[in-house]
Amino acid sequence: MTATLKNILTGKNSRQGLWILPLIIVVIGFVSLSVSTEDFATSQNLSNLLKQAMPLIIVAIGQMIVILLGGMDLSVGSMISLTTALLAIDAPAVVTIPLVVVAAVMVGFINGFSVVRLNVHPIIATLSMQFIVLGVAKLIRPVAGGSVPEFLVQWVNGTIFGVSTVFLLTPIVILIGWKLIHGSRYGLHLFAIGGGAAEGQEDAAHNFGISDRRNIIVAYICSALFAALAGAFLAGRIASGDPNVGTIFALDSVTAVAIGGTQLSGGIGGLHGTLIGALLMALLSNGMNLANLSAFLQGSIKGGILLLVVALQSRKKMGL
């Protein structure tokens, strides 16, 4: 009995990884915050919480697709910055929005191509892409400024039938992510390729007739597109372009995915875990602000929780 309980709690033998423990932490945090501070459980604060969590949720879904394959995309932060910079150039929305999509597909393709065809380690490929994309973003917009298309600002900050649009946009994005990862053949292929990579059998999926190279390239393109979507959302929220706005997302997205129980060696994880991870991150900063905790310690506490959760996971591979 205790062994079964321990297996469930530490996510052993689970294809979804360790997600129950983070969920318990989220629930405990939620309950204790709504009991201790009366400002927490207001609809105003909850809508704020979701607005804070929304970009991270979107990026984390994209990041998770890549991590499921045993890769990692560190260029998402710069992609977000580039998106806000592109949206804020002095051009109509019919020009800028296709431009963002093209840029995202290009960045994702170069990442995927370097990893698959040119045999570059994913961390190195996306790390160098992070510098290049950030450089391009800073060429377009050296300092924060400009104005993004008006409808985007209204979309993100407005209400539909008295409900904040975030409450409607979030389920749509989650549904797309769910369809992609858990509801399609492509999702199954992701798990197959990642599962092989985690066991050191990189060609396992290939030998079963899965076109792994194409799927990996598509995964990096998806990750860049999700990052662009998050960038559009952020651009709408801050109503301008900012080349530094995305920087923290590169690591925060990996953190959210890892907290949610997805294993970085690939093949194990679930969308619900990633959502819990992203919510936990948002809840932490929101709750610590309400509890008047020093802003400087928040990073330490986030890091500590990440270490705790990751150290509890069982993993075979050592190193990266």
Binding site: I123, V254, A258, F296, S300, L307, Q313, L320
Partner: peptide, 29 residues
Amino acid sequence: LIGRRRVSAVIATLAVTTILAGIVQFFAS
């Protein structure tokens, strides 16, 4: 963390950096 607990090295060392940075910023306010 990396050798015994098999934590991903990227995550472990990054988390250590954020923890140390947070401690320093807290002391320095």
